[in-house]
Amino acid sequence: MTDKNVLVLVGSLRAASINRQLAETALAHAPEGLTLSLYEGHGALPLYNEDLDVEGRLPASVVEFREALGAADALLVVTPEHNGTVPANLKNAIDWSSRPFGEAAIVAKPVAVIGTAFGQYGGIWAQDETRKAFGIAGANVLEQRTLSIPHSLVRFAETHPNDDAEIVTQLTAFLDEFAAELAKLDEDAAAA
């Protein structure tokens, strides 16, 4: 597999977010061949408004975000669950990533979604909704590549995910599967 640049989006904007900590742990344990880069700018995106989405007059934050997406080989989303669904800033980023329709940088881009949340299901509703929205936007959503970690506030109350051996093992296995899936996509594309 050729080296893959993976853009990482965190669904929570809080500096102390457990999902941010999980993303940092992913960066620390990325397998050879995957370069993960945490994207910090999606919180600066204005709410999606078609009146703002005009070529040549796009807000700088949108241009930067779309360029980062375009330069990435894949996207990894690490998200909590807000009121049983996708955090607003993440949904907004998905909306900006989906334009221009049919030509957006997200079209056919491999996307995987993981995360942790307080509830017993680990944010699975938000993850499912995120996959659905990216799929509708045209991304190649890797449905089988998942990781949901329940009871985040209790589990990580005094422990960073990087210091939890079980989580590191699960995350490393996920990243290995993600890398293998990206390699398979390359092989399929070469064979086509």
Rank of each mutant, 00 (worst) to 15 (best):
R14W: 07
L182D: 05
L69Q: 08
A117W: 04
G119A: 09
S97H: 09
H82A: 11
G102R: 12
V86T: 10
E55S: 10
P100R: 08
E158F: 02
D3F: 05
A28K: 06
W96N: 00
T116E: 04
A165G: 04
P87Y: 09
T85Y: 10
G102K: 06
Y121V: 14
I106L: 10
E50W: 00
L147A: 09
A117E: 10
V77W: 03
R57Y: 10
E187H: 15
A179H: 13
P100C: 11
T85E: 08
E103R: 13
S12Y: 10
G33Q: 04
A191E: 14
A189Q: 12
F118S: 10
F174V: 06
F65T: 00
F134K: 02
I18L: 13
E32F: 05
A180V: 09
G70M: 04
E129F: 14
A190N: 09
V62A: 01
E158M: 07
A71P: 01
S61P: 01
D163W: 00
A190V: 13
K184V: 07
H82C: 05
A108G: 07
P150G: 09
D3C: 13
K184N: 01
L7M: 14
M1Q: 13
E177R: 13
K109F: 06
A112Y: 11
G123P: 07
S61A: 14
D51T: 03
H151G: 01
F134Q: 03
L7H: 10
T130A: 02
S12D: 06
A74V: 07
S17F: 07
L36P: 03
L9C: 06
F174P: 03
L171M: 11
A190M: 06
T2E: 13
E129S: 14
Y48T: 00
A191F: 08
A16D: 13
P59W: 03
E50L: 00
K184M: 06
I94S: 00
H29K: 01
V113S: 05
N49G: 02
I94V: 10
H42E: 07
D51K: 01
E181G: 11
S17V: 07
A179G: 14
R57H: 11
R145N: 13
L147D: 05
V154Q: 15
V8P: 09
K132W: 14
A133K: 06
E187G: 15
L13P: 05
V141K: 11
H160I: 05
P161D: 05
F101M: 12
E40I: 13
P161V: 02
F178P: 00
N140E: 12
T172I: 08
L69E: 07
T172Q: 14
A105T: 01
G115E: 11
A44F: 14
A71F: 08
D186N: 13
N19E: 08
E158K: 05
N140G: 01
T79G: 03
A68I: 03
V63W: 02
E64N: 10
A180I: 15
E64F: 04
V86S: 12
K4H: 08
S17Q: 09
E181C: 15
H29V: 04
W125R: 10
T130S: 01
G138D: 02
G33V: 11
L34G: 03
E64L: 10
A179D: 06
G70H: 04
